[in-house]
Design a protein around this nucleic acid. Structure first.
Lengths: 140, 140
DNA sequence: GGTTAATTGATATTTAATCTCAATTTCATT
DNA sequence: AATGAAATTGAGATTAAATATCAATTAACC
């Protein structure tokens, strides 16, 4: 299903569905969780599917463009992504102590953002909301 | 006033108020707007005050820790900061086409975030909300 | 003023991400 | 199935932000 969407997107843009792009897509959707591009690259090497580092980065950009993948944060150690398709949109609480990432979704939050955009004559496309603080476990 | 706060913070942590730290602080508050660490470094060189690149970065970290400065985004070209003291908290709309950054503040948004934290037994400390899209001017 | 621990700065290093370009592959068209 | 144009790949070079190193310096406390 993701493949179909990806293929459509590539078709519209007259881009090609290569083995490498397919391999990246599959690995991205085989794994459920947050990941960095480098992690993805090494996981692919381990699992035998082949795509160069350059292709991994390039394909990730495409997957974000077509809405299958989301960049959810920029940590000190690079970008963090997650796949979207099949999961609802959500935002993140990030614990500054243990690094845990908690997902949440708030309809109200989304509505207010739309309102903000409207007031500023802005066409919102995507957003990143990360709330940093201390998680319940670390608070003790 | 910022100086007083900064001095207090350093005192508490048994850190020293050096010429360099002071110079960074002053430059940060002399300029109203968003800036990258590199910009700050070069602006300081131009204006004659001296601090090494390393000190600029190190001092920025301190200023964020003590709440005088906020990291508001991580662009592809590095982090973006702004000073806080004297300005209310706010979030940002970022135009993907021209790069313009529009500030906004929504009380409701803040309240909902508090609610989200409460529900997740999370103690929120700070947050970054950047809404990306197309600004009114670029929409045409 | 002396002592101690923190700080500085020039430079090297790290690391993510992008760029280069010849060789290869896809895909629409025969 | 063969062809050809245009897109894509990949190994390695490159870029750029940010951090680490460490001897020399400096602030803060007595």
């Amino acid at each position: 299903m993701e493949q179909k969407l990806f293929k459509n997107y590539l078709g519209e843009k007259r881009l090609k569905l290569t083995k490498e792009r397919l391999a990246v897509l599959q690995e991205v959707f085989a794994f459920h969780g947050h990941f960095a591009p480098e992690q993805l690259y090494f996981r692919m090497r381990d699992s035998g599917s082949k795509a160069s580092r350059a292709s991994v980065y390039r394909t990730l950009t495409l997957l974000v463009e077509c809405g299958l993948v989301q960049r959810i944060a920029r940590s000190d150690r690079g970008n963090v992504y997650e796949h979207i398709y099949g999961h609802g949109h959500h935002d993140h609480l990030i614990c500054s102590l243990c690094g845990e990432i908690i997902e949440f979704y708030s309809e109200n939050l989304e509505k207010i953002q739309e309102e903000v955009c409207r007031r500023n004559k802005f066409r919102g496309v995507s957003h990143i909301l990360e709330i940093r603080g201390i998680c319940g476990r670390c608070k003790g």
